[in-house]
C-alpha cells in the first residue's frame, strides 16, 4: 500500500483548472451542428431525410425553412455531411445546458437574453456542495462512461464540491440518463419520491431530454418528457465530461447557460 502512495505522489497532479483555466480536455470534440438559415436552399430536404431522431423538420411559410430542435439532436453529423450549401455546419458547441426546454429550439428572432434567471432557484439552499443521485433509465451506457469520467483525476469533480451519493435520501439532484424504458419507469419515479425537498432534476443526454434514437417503440419512452419536472436539460450523445460539469454549475448558478433559443453564445457576439 505505501508503494501506491508513493506512486501517486510521484505522478503529481493531473487535474485541469478548467473552468477557471483553458484546458477543458475536449480538443477536437464535435458538438451540435450550427444552422445558418441564409444558406439554406429552397426545395432541399437532404438533412431532414437523414435525421434519425427527428431533430430537423421542415417548416411551412416562415422565413427559416428548418425547425431545429437541439433537444433531439444525437450529434451524428449526418446532416452536415449531406447539406450541399453549408447551411448546417460542424461546431464545437457542446456546452448545451439550459433551464428551459424551449431554449433548445432554434429561433430566428432571439429574445433579449434573460438578465437574471430566477435567481433564487437554488441560492440559499445549496451554495457550495451538491449531491447527485444518478439513475440509468435505459441508456446505451455512453452517458455512464462520461459520468464515470468525472471522478477521474483530470476532471476531479470533487474539487467543485459536487459528489455522487448512493442514497436518494441524501441527494439534491436526480441526474437521469436514458430513454426511460417501461421497465425502469417505476424505479425512476420511486427514486425521485424518495428524495427530500428541495430537489432538482437534470436530464442528461438526448435520450433523457427527448428519447433519442430509441424514442417510442414498444419498450422505450420519451425521456423525461411529461414525466418529471426538469431543472436543467443537457442534450448531447453523449455529453462530454466538461459539458456535464458546465451543466452542474449551471444548476448551481455558478455558471450561466451559454445557449438560448438554440443559439450558442449570443451574448458574447454582441
Amino acid at each position: 500500500m505505501p508503494a501506491w502512495t508513493l506512486f501517486g505522489l510521484m505522478r503529481g497532479s493531473a487535474t485541469t483548472d478548467w473552468p477557471v483555466g483553458e484546458d477543458d480536455g475536449q480538443k477536437n470534440v464535435l458538438g451540435m451542428p450550427r444552422y445558418h438559415p441564409e444558406k439554406c436552399e429552397a426545395g432541399c430536404k437532404e438533412c431532414v431525410a437523414v435525421c434519425l431522431p427527428g431533430a430537423l423538420t421542415l417548416t411551412h411559410g416562415n422565413e427559416a425553412r428548418l425547425k431545429v430542435d437541439y433537444g433531439r439532436c444525437v450529434v451524428c453529423q449526418l446532416c452536415v455531411e449531406v447539406c450541399p450549401t453549408g447551411a448546417l455546419a460542424t461546431s464545437n458547441d457542446w456546452a448545451f445546458a439550459v433551464h428551459e426546454r424551449n431554449d433548445l429550439r432554434w429561433k430566428e428572432a432571439i429574445r433579449s437574453p434573460e438578465a437574471a434567471i430566477v435567481k433564487s432557484r437554488i441560492e440559499g439552499a445549496f451554495k457550495r456542495s451538491l449531491h447527485i443521485r444518478h439513475v440509468d433509465a435505459g441508456s446505451c451506457n455512453g452517458c455512464e462512461s462520461e459520468l464515470q469520467a468525472l471522478n477521474n483525476p483530470f476532471y476531479n469533480l470533487h474539487r467543485l464540491g459536487i459528489f455522487f451519493t448512493p442514497s436518494p435520501r441524501f441527494a439534491d439532484v436526480l441526474l437521469v440518463t436514458g430513454t426511460v424504458t417501461y421497465a425502469m419507469r417505476d424505479a425512476l419515479l420511486a427514486t425521485y419520491e424518495a428524495m427530500p425537498e428541495p430537489k432538482w432534476v437534470m436530464a442528461m443526454g438526448t435520450c433523457a431530454v427527448s428519447g433519442g434514437v430509441a424514442t417510442g417503440g414498444y419498450s422505450s419512452g420519451h425521456g423525461l418528457e411529461g414525466l418529471l419536472p426538469v431543472d436543467v436539460y443537457l442534450p448531447g450523445c453523449s455529453p462530454n465530461p466538461a459539458a456535464i460539469i458546465h451543466a452542474l454549475l449551471v444548476l448551481l448558478e455558478r455558471a450561466s447557460p451559454r445557449v438560448s433559443d438554440g443559439h450558442m453564445d449570443i451574448n458574447r457576439h454582441e
Binding site: V50, L52, V74, C76, L78, D136, G138, S139, C140, N141, G142, C143, E144, S145, G178, T179, T181, A183, M184, A187, G212, V213, A214, G217, Y218, S219, S220, C237, S238
Partner: peptide, 28 residues
C-alpha cells in the same frame, strides 16, 4: 430493465442510417 427494443428501430431504415443506431446500442 434497459431493453429499448433497439432491433425493432432498424426496421424500414436505409442501411446508411442504421449505423447511427448501431453506434448507440452500447456506448462503450
Amino acid at each position: 430493465f434497459k431493453h429499448r427494443g433497439m432491433e425493432k428501430r432498424f426496421e424500414g431504415l436505409e442501411p446508411a442510417l442504421g449505423v447511427v443506431l448501431a453506434e448507440r446500442v452500447s456506448g462503450v
